[in-house]
Design a protein around this nucleic acid. Sequence first.
DNA 1: AAAAATAATAGTAATCATTACTATTTATTT
DNA 2: AAATAAATAGTAATGATTACTATTATTTTT
Lengths: 120, 120
Amino acid sequence: MRFSQQRETIINIIHSTKIHPTADWIYRKAKKYIPNISLGTVYRNLKQLEQDQLISTIFDGSVARFDSNMERHDHLKCKICGSLTDLTLDYDFKSTVKQKFNFIADEIEMTIIGTCSKHN
Amino acid sequence: MRFSQQRETIINIIHSTKIHPTADWIYRKAKKYIPNISLGTVYRNLKQLEQDQLISTIFDGSVARFDSNMERHDHLKCKICGSLTDLTLDYDFKSTVKQKFNFIADEIEMTIIGTCSKHN
DNA sequence: AAAAATAATAGTAATCATTACTATTTATTT
DNA sequence: AAATAAATAGTAATGATTACTATTATTTTT
């Protein structure tokens, strides 16, 4: 993977926020630095960064959001404001599903949906 | 909600399978009974059934799948064959997130990703 | 049982997120 | 400095889903 100003900018943008931005949000931010950057470039780089395990993709309903936090963690999703917040819960279901279903678990995605502290 | 043969057929199809079908899969099945049924009709009814809490929607990556199992449950997703299997794990994180984050949890979505028993 | 009211449909067009394509540009190697 | 090939911009294409509208079917009223 060769250096490019576009990719560098995209990486910086993702690392600068905790909001788990969409491709379009990243694109609009990136345009402030590189006005003629293309949305395709954003998507292509996001896919590449995910393949190289530098970011991960969260599917929030039908749109993809991108996360620079590569530690194992879960999410709180607020129904009111749509915010997605990181948290880390303690559990281990990998051994359970191996025993009960002979299923070899690689990762566990957990999203807790409800109302965040801002609205109560 | 008034009766319609189309909706009745869609409900029967969803209840007849455990594969968590997509809208398109339901549409192709439904055409065997109602050859000129429209894909829009399938989507409109699926949305309506979800609103009435008769089915639920699972977002599998970027495509929606539909589930007639309305009991609280989790999913095992196989990376090899793409299968999505129901299971029910025992946990309670609602009280934890209320205490730690003042977050009022309504539901928890958990998908365990890995390799199912067919491939090992 | 016929007429009136309106929910639901088929068929098609539009939308939105994402991916594919291609000629050109840019980073790296020779 | 020239050669090589990865990356880009801009645009077209795709696939899932939603919106629109004239017509059809179900339910209610008479």
